[in-house]
Every structure is written in C-alpha cells, then in structure tokens.
Design a protein around this nucleic acid. Structure first.
Length: 806
RNA sequence: GCUGGUGUGGCGGAAUGGCAGACGCACAGGACUUAAAAUCCUGAGUUCGCAAGGACGUGUGGGUUCGACUCCCACCACCAGCACCA
C-alpha cells in the first residue's frame, strides 16, 4: 500500500473531472430518470467561507449519490452578481463593477473546484451577464405587458447621505446599510410588481413544498392572510349633515357594540374630502406632517406612546346601533394595510385601550373578562368562548355564536361584507443604482410609458466611471445623457430611458430555469428542456433571505407558468435551509470571530475529504453547529483506516461474516443520503470499518460496495482506492442494492423487562413464541420467572421486547 | 408581544412509543517505545458498593401507557422569524 498523499490525489481527481466532465447533465437522456439538485448560487462578493462549505457539500453528496443510483443529475452553479458588493467596490475605486464580478467569480468558482464539487460547469453564468439579464428584462416586459408591473408614487426608505432608496432590509433599525446614517421616508416614483394578487397561490405553494415547518410558517406570516369584515361607517358634520363615509376592516366583528371611536391613518384620503368640515384642519395638517417626517423606524420604536389628533366638527355613526363616535387620525393605523381605517374598541384591543387612556375616551365592555387594566383580547375570549355583554339582542350569547350572527346582521343591513386581507404588499422593484438590470422601458412625451421592443433586448448598461446618484437621488444612469436619450419605440420621437435598475432579487428569482438551457438566445429556456428537467427536486442554501427569495421565486414561476413560458408551476419540490457554522461565541462565524477558520485552511491542512466529512459529522444539515477542530482527528483516522482496507482484502464474494452488516450499511446510507442526515451515515461507515477490522479481513466485493457507498461523501480517496484495487473507474460502477432478507438476523438480543423496567437481555431466536420464551427465561434466569410465579400480564413484541408484569 | 423551533454526559451529537447516551472528541488505564508522537487494546451517565448488585437519570411539574427523550397539558430557558397588520 502506498502512503495516501491527499494533496496529490485530490488534485489528480479534480483535474480529471475538469478535463473529462463526468458530471455533465444530459438533456433528454434516453434511459435515465432526471434529478435536479440545486445549491443557492453564491453572491459574488468575496471568498469562500464556512457557510459555502456547509451548504454545498451535502448538495454535492446528494448529486453524486443520485448519479450512482442511475439518475441523470443536473447539478449546476452560477453567480448572483448584480448588487451592492460590486456597486460599492465601484464607488470606491471608480472601476466598472463588471471587473469586480469577473475577478470575484473566478475566485469563488476556483475555490468551489477545490472542494471537488461535482457541478456541471458548462452551464455556469452570472446574473450580470448580458445574455442572462436579457431574459430578466424579457420577464419584466411580460409582467409589464400583462398589466402586472406599474409605476406609482409611493413612500420609500431614503438615505439622504447616499441619495438612494433602500429596501426595508437595507435600512434595518432606521440606519442605512451602506453609510450607517439615518434613513428618511420619502415619496418617490416606484415600480411595483403585482405580487399581492398571488397571495393565495403563494400560500398553496407553501403548503405543497417540502420544507421545515419553521420556514413555512415564516412565509405564511409574511403573506399575512387574515379573514374579517369590511364595514362602512357614515360620517356626519356637527350639524347632522352626511359628508362622507369610511370603510373599516376588522377581524373582531363581535366587538362592534363596544366601539367608542374610529381611527384613520394619517395618510388617509378622507382627510382631504372632509377638509371643509374639519374645524381644526391646521392642527390635523400639522399632525399629518409630523408623522410623515418620522421614519418607519421611529413610528415603531415608540409604539407604547400613542399619538393622534381628533377631527373636530365631524363624527362617525356605528351602523348597528346608530351611536355617534369621534373620528381620530393616528399613526398606529397603517395606511397600506386593510382600508387604512379601523373601528376602535378599547375594552378588547390593547392598542385601542392605550389610545383611549391617552385621550380620555370612554370604554364599553361587550365581552366578559376583566378590562380594568388592559384589554381582554380576541385570543383570550375566543379560547374561553366567553359570553357577550351590552350588545343588544346578542347579549348573553357565547362569543363564537355571536360573531357569526353579528356578521350576518351587518351583511343583511347592507353595510358590510366578509373580506380577506393580506399583509404582503406589491413588490417595490426599482433601485437608484448602477449595477442592476436596466428597465426595458422608455418614457415618451407622446406615447407615455413604452416597452422596449423584445428584439432590442438586452438594454445594456452604459460605460461610466461615476457610480453615485445625483443630488436628487436619481440613479447614476441618469447622468449618462447619450444613454438616457433615445427614440420612442412606438413613434420614433425623442424619448428618455427609465434610469432606475432592478433590485438584486430580480436575477435570483428565475435562475434555476436558465440552467436548463443556459445558452438559448430564442427563449429564457427551451420549453421541451424545461419539461424534461421539471421542478428542482432538492434545493439547498442558506436561510438568510430564504423567506423572500422563495416567495419571489414562487411568484415569478407562477406568472411564467400562467403566460405559458414554462411548463411547471412549482419551482422547487423540496427546499432545505442549511444551518450556520457558529463561532465560539455561538454567533455566525465571521472574519472577526476568534476561532474563525477558513475552509481553505482546513483543506490545506487535512484535505478536502476530511474537511467534508468533518463538517457533515458536526451535526445535521439544517442545524446550527459550532465550529471546532476537536474531533477532526477522528475523521482523519477513519479515512486512514479506509485507505488501509486495501491491504486487508481476502476472498472475492460477500462473506457470510459481513453480509448482514453490509446490507444494513447499504440501507442506512441510502436512507440517510436521501434525508441529508450525513452525520449518522458517517457513523454507520465507522461501525462497519470497525467490524471488518475486528474480523481482520474484507472481501473484494465488500470493498467495492463500501467504496461506492462512501464515494458521495469522500469522493477523492474512494475514487483513488477503487482505481488502485480494481483498475477501473468508480464512477462507471453502480450503487449497490440491499436485500431485505439480510437485514434480519435469526438470533437477536431480546430485552426482558420486569414491571416495565429492564432486567436482563437474552439471546433468542427471532421467531420464538411467547411460551418458548418463558421456558427460555426460566432456564436462564429462574429468579425472574419460574412456573410457580403468577404472571399478571405479559407484553411480547417479537424481536423487540418482552415485558413481564407480576 | 405574536408565531415557529429546540432543550439528552465534560463537548459535538444518536435514538420519534420498546436495551437512553450510537458514532466521534476530550479523559483515564494498559500495550508498543530508551522516551515522546503516532498506532492499537480496555474503561467510563451520576451515585451507593470491594464486588455481585441497587438507586437515580433526556429543562421543570403533572398526565396517558405494560412501557415515554419520544404522545398530551402547564411552566421555564434558549434560538429564529415577524412585530401597532385592526
């Protein structure tokens, strides 16, 4: 046996894979079934980190396993390359972000190759490649043409320092992600995609996909479906003249007799309508302005202090009992949810309670409970099914019954109907940035907003060296005059291009479709190829942006499916969120972590196969696991033993000594690979190796099967050893199958319990009857059972356990 | 606050109604060695006991069951997501 030189061997196989491309996915393979494994493509921003390692290698193991199982596997990789890292670098250096992406992707893909990942490299692209973003633009055009993209003024997060609009994510805590300065709310033109329309379809998608419950719940939360009623309240001026009406949304119609005021969001249109009737309009306007200036963050941070402003001179009327109630403006009511107006029942809603206390508004209790210190809310009174109070003919009824009856009454009166609301908003889709897909949209004084002709796609980014927005916060592209000025595609007169670009999310919302046919210049991908590869069978990646990324992906593919551009509605069948590798503080590992190890260091020192097994062995794929070098020697010594197996070969066929262990190993490893439970798979391998070493031999056939089983986890050493022993290529071989009849042994250890507690373990034939078992127990352990003793009961599960109750 | 998830030796973790702690690390003892490293063998949840053997033990308290880490109820802690969503 030659000493195992991991550096040389790993390099040898990686070179071979690069040259011979054994992992190439074959379109329309005549015999093999397809399997699509996807790893969430990396952001092109820096160098390989532990997160990549934790995410890629289980996907690679699955892909390799499925190939050996006889599947035609598509396992592609690319780069998510539009976005902030490249843009920021460009601002700093003045060099085109394209350069940054070129270098960055070379680096990260090179490092991926060092991991020995079995990607089909012929399908690789970056989202900022022109022939990729051509199709991102094409998809936007379809949204636009089908009326699902529109431009409208909206209030957005704006950083006055960077002069750019920020997403909620980029402005967390009210601070700009880029400069750390305060973020303001500003009204700007915003492109929206009509995602809200897809709420129900997205909920269906969430139900269908295989994914951890916590992740599904986060997505349902984000969509935020809530069922309730919309009810109309008429508004009167103080002299009794009807001057308007307002629609409110409530999920608690049962509390309608407890209303003591109603509230409008400060931005609500009704304020303008009622202007002439509002006596304190100056005050109202001042309140509106004050809240408009406060950032979203401020509005949330002092949520304990309720602020508001009464509309003097008008009142609303509760339709069920004609009670007059005051109308307030308050910023705890959000303009963009429901109708932007609520009925307030301080006894049964904590926010209303606090507001009523602050403004000295009376309260009426309509459901049992103690409302003196805080509101008795829905959750509590519904759980107890409390009784109604002070609610006319509904008083005394259980709340669940009253809820339905009051709803019927309101509907019968013609002032309300059942209504479903969603928290999710339409997707704000433009950024004032250079490094993104330009919108294929032109503004013409005569024709308005016009789509660029599809044959003129892509609309490419112009060269510039100025990557900062202008003083008004317009995109850097607005400074490139000869790009902005163009001809109207419709009438040919001078027109101007849209200068905003799409968000980073755009390119990642359909990329798995492009892998199917990455060089197609006629369509985003060939329809028949899309049909062949279908949905992604297993999609792995980090959990950082998983909620939005998955929902955006569902949304785009739903739309593309509906317009007939793709043959499947579901992008993914199964989505796994990889856990984090934590540092010694229990935090996500970063460069500042004290024990922050780089995967490249580990590979340099121990080799890729060791690094892979070690990371798998740290814990489950979806679990967060602390990084440690502790235990890595267990892996190196295991692989040393695997390498040494070649010197222990005696005999050819599977031996009777190992037939059960080998069959169990095949079953265990196959199941664990399907579930990505790789830590327990490795332990099964260790147990098998220990058995073989105890017996002092392994047969040729046993070694062959063993190496194939281990190949997807430790591809280099197994490929090499297979070649050394068998003189052939492991990849040409097939995954071994197990035989059920070798999974059960005839003689098994059977635990004997006495009154439910373990007493002894005896070795018996698997099929022994209860009577025979008792005889056996009496023979071996008369102190447990003998003929004279009276058994109250006996539980016997053959092969599992026996419990004797006296 | 709401929602979801998790809680097991000194550590990473196994076991989803049937021998708790697989596998690995660290630890202890032994073999080999002039010695060390490496390697190999053995031991080990805690506790009482020389031992045989016993008691206790999966966050806490109850329950269901012949039998519970596993199922049910209440509580505690931690992690994640959302957060004035009417």
């Amino acid at each position: 046996m030659e000493k195992y030189d991991f550096k040389a061997v790993e390099q040898k196989w990686q070179d071979k894979w690069e040259k011979e491309k054994p992992f190439k996915a074959i379109d329309f393979h005549p015999t093999k079934p397809k399997y699509y494994v996807l790893y969430e493509f990396p952001n092109i921003s820096g160098s390989l980190h532990m997160g990549h390692l934790k995410g890629t290698i289980p996907a690679d193991a699955l892909a390799r396993y499925k190939r050996l199982k006889g599947y035609n596997v598509l396992f592609p990789i690319g780069g998510d390359s539009f976005g902030l890292p490249a843009e920021n670098a460009a601002i700093k250096t003045g060099i085109n972000p394209r350069k940054f992406v070129e270098n960055g992707s070379k680096t990260i893909f090179g490092q991926f190759k060092k991991l020995g990942l079995s990607f089909d490299w012929d399908r690789t692209f970056n989202t900022s490649d022109e022939d990729y973003y051509k199709w991102t633009q094409w998809i936007f055009l379809q949204f636009f043409k089908h009326g699902k993209a529109y431009k409208k003024k909206g209030v957005v997060n704006f950083c006055p320092n960077c002069k750019t609009v920020l997403s909620n994510e980029d402005s967390q805590g009210g601070k700009c992600d880029r400069c750390g300065g305060d973020v303001r709310q500003e009204e700007r033109w915003v492109w929206f995609l009509k995602m809200k329309e897809y709420s129900e379809k997205l909920l269906d998608n969430v139900d269908r996909i295989q994914m951890a419950e916590s992740l599904k719940e986060a997505q349902r939360n984000w969509i935020g479906k809530s069922e309730g009623m919309q009810v109309r309240f008429d508004i009167f001026s103080d002299n009794g003249e009807k001057v308007g009406n307002m629609e409110i949304f409530t999920t608690c119609i049962e509390t309608i007799y407890g209303i003591t005021f109603v509230v409008l969001a400060p931005e609500h249109d009704l304020v303008e309508v009622l202007k002439s009737n509002i006596k304190n309009f100056d005050e109202v306007l001042a309140y509106k302005e004050k809240t408009a200036l406060r950032s979203e963050f401020d509005r949330l941070s002092d949520q304990k202090e309720k602020t508001g402003c009464k509309l003097e001179g008008v009142y609303a009327v509760n339709p069920v009992n004609n009670t007059k109630v005051p109308v307030f403006l308050a910023d705890f009511v959000l303009a963009n949810y429901g109708t932007g107006a609520v009925m307030a029942v301080p006894t049964h809603d904590q926010r209303d309670f606090e507001f009523a206390q602050a403004f000295g508004i009376p309260m009426i209790q309509v459901i049992e409970g103690d409302c003196s210190k805080h509101a008795v809310e829905k959750k509590e009174y519904l759980a107890k099914n409390s009784k109604m109070l002070n609610s006319a003919e509904f008083s005394g009824l259980p709340v669940k019954e009253a809820k339905e009856k009051i709803a019927q009454k309101v509907i019968a009166m013609g002032v309300g109907q059942k209504k479903i609301n969603y928290r999710m908003q339409d997707w704000s889709f433009n950024r004032q940035r250079y490094w993104g897909e330009p919108f294929p949209i032109v503004f013409c004084d005569h024709c308005g907003t016009v789509a660029v002709d599809e044959k003129d796609l892509p609309v490419t980014l112009p060269e510039t060296n100025d990557y900062l927005p202008n003083a008004n916060g317009d995109s850097p592209l607005s400074k490139v005059a000869d790009w902005v000025n163009c001809k109207c595609p419709k009438c040919g007169r001078p027109a101007r291009r849209e200068t905003d670009t799409m968000p980073n999310w755009a390119g990642s919302s359909w990329y798995w479709l492009r892998y199917v046919d990455p060089h197609n210049d006629k369509a985003l991908a060939d329809f028949e190829k899309l049909k062949y590869w279908g949905s992604v069978d297993c999609y792995t990646g980090g959990t950082e942006h998983i909620t939005r990324h998955v929902l955006y992906s569902f949304f785009w593919q739903n739309f593309l499916y509906e317009i007939g551009a793709v043959p499947t509605r579901d992008p993914f069948i199964r989505k796994m969120g990889s856990g984090l590798i934590l540092d010694d503080q229990g935090k996500k590992m970063s460069k500042s972590s004290k024990n922050g190890a780089s995967p490249l260091e580990v590979i340099e020192k121990y080799g890729v196969d060791v690094a892979r097994l070690h990371v798998h062995f740290l814990g489950g794929y979806e679990d967060n696991t602390p990084w440690t070098y502790d235990g890595i020697t267990g892996i190196t010594s295991f692989l040393d033993k695997v390498w040494a197996l070649q010197d222990m070969v005696k005999g050819d066929a599977v031996s009777k000594e190992h037939i059960y262990e080998l069959n169990r190993l095949i079953k265990k490893v196959s199941e664990d690979l399907e579930d990505l439970k790789l830590n327990t798979a490795i332990s099964a391998f260790m147990i098998f190796v220990k058995k073989v070493r105890d017996d002092g031999f392994i047969t040729k056939e046993e070694l062959r099967q063993f190496l194939i089983l281990l190949n997807s986890l430790a591809p280099h050493i197994t490929s090499e050893e297979y070649e050394v022993v068998f003189g052939k290529e492991l990849l040409d071989d097939k995954w071994p199958e197990y035989d059920e009849k070798f999974l059960v042994e005839d003689v098994v250890p059977l635990p004997i319990q006495v009154n439910g507690k373990l007493s002894k373990v005896i070795s018996v034939s698997r099929n022994i009857t209860q009577d025979e078992l008792l005889v056996e127990i009496e023979k071996q352990y008369p102190e447990i059972y003998s003929k004279g003793k009276v058994l109250k009961k006996m539980i016997y599960v053959p092969g599992r356990i026996a419990n004797l109750i006296f």
